[in-house]
Nucleic acid binder design. Sequence first.
DNA 1: GTTGGCGAGATTGTATGCAATCCTGCGTAC
DNA 2: GTACGCAGGATTGCATACAATCTCGCCAAC
Lengths: 216, 216
Amino acid sequence: MLDKAGVVPQRAEDHLREAIVTGRLQPNERLVESDLARSMGVSRTIVRAALVRLEHEGLVEHERHRGARVRLVSVREAVEILETRAVLEGLAARLAAQRADVDDVEDLKTILADMQRLREADDLLAVSDENAKLHRRLLDISGHETAARLIGALNSQMVRFQYRTILLPGRSERSFAEHAEIIAAVATGDGERAEAAMRTHLSSVADALRREAPES
Amino acid sequence: MLDKAGVVPQRAEDHLREAIVTGRLQPNERLVESDLARSMGVSRTIVRAALVRLEHEGLVEHERHRGARVRLVSVREAVEILETRAVLEGLAARLAAQRADVDDVEDLKTILADMQRLREADDLLAVSDENAKLHRRLLDISGHETAARLIGALNSQMVRFQYRTILLPGRSERSFAEHAEIIAAVATGDGERAEAAMRTHLSSVADALRREAPES
DNA sequence: GTTGGCGAGATTGTATGCAATCCTGCGTAC
DNA sequence: GTACGCAGGATTGCATACAATCTCGCCAAC
């Protein structure tokens, strides 16, 4: 019927999520329901429902009678998330290797080439975007919806650390080699190798993060 | 202050979850907000919030303006869940092997012995309970909160299949051997072996499920 | 007999109001 | 000067009312 029908709460939730994920709302910042409601032109009911969902996603922390605040993800937790992603995306990579057709492999190689190009142009933020695209594409190829869902939730919690790791000295080169190895394994249909390569890759990101910020 | 303060919504949510998980509410059954509210003596607001959370947990399916219904987990999805658990609990088992002290190992061996005893008494439902306890204990030992959280969510979706797999002919014996291998690996502090054993175990449960109900 | 549409009842979506709780700052006692 | 306590404002928790939407049965047209 109406194209704008019922889209309001979704928009509100997305808007909030984006504000948190992009850092416009800082960690630990209080999220006062009535303020958010006013600023987005919706009622508190909508905001409240959105906050409940975002809490489940791990972006927001909620204490009874004290309201919601943007959740601060500690380094320790970020490492846990990367360890978890390592095994989940390892699973996805294994399946992707088993299921990829020639077009899929072509896609992956194109993305890899783009990353290489952007890396040489020192556009590291764009590299990070292509990186996300590459991981996303592998998930799609794997066809594993459960893994995809969990990984998606984990990723949105990681934004604070998204850019930092790629900026570390040497990380970008190393990351490229690791991605190349993953794709080579997928191209030859070697699931075991693809899984191992993906686990190595994400473990090495986790190590880099541990080294960068060893606060506990 | 008051011991019953603010506990109401939590109770409502738990009550609903339990009704779904135990099968008192059947898959695909409609969940009419006002009925649930009346039957639990709370307002629709509470029920609504609970349904939002349960939807996120994957127990409930919600279509706009059409309400919520108990989600039906297909065999295909159950297999996906077990594959996912295999890698997540594999991670946990590896860490558990690295961190377990003698008391932890003692606990695990006790649970294993109980399982053996109950199995010989043919009390397969009790075996299933001990099984859950064993997996839970390994998670605790691993100390990996992120993995624990994800696994918990996955488990609650699996209830429909929880009992069936252990009832399959031969499954109970095989399961015991697999658990023994996991615990042996943990006892010797061999993380790699513990992870491999856990993955083998849950993959074999997944295979059993695929064989039992190859629909989809 | 089938299709289309229309209206009543059922159900969900959203806004708002009031109660409960928490936080802050100020005054008072020691 | 510090600690305590106690308003008063700010904020959240919950219930309810009303609007929007869907479902389903019935009737008419073909």
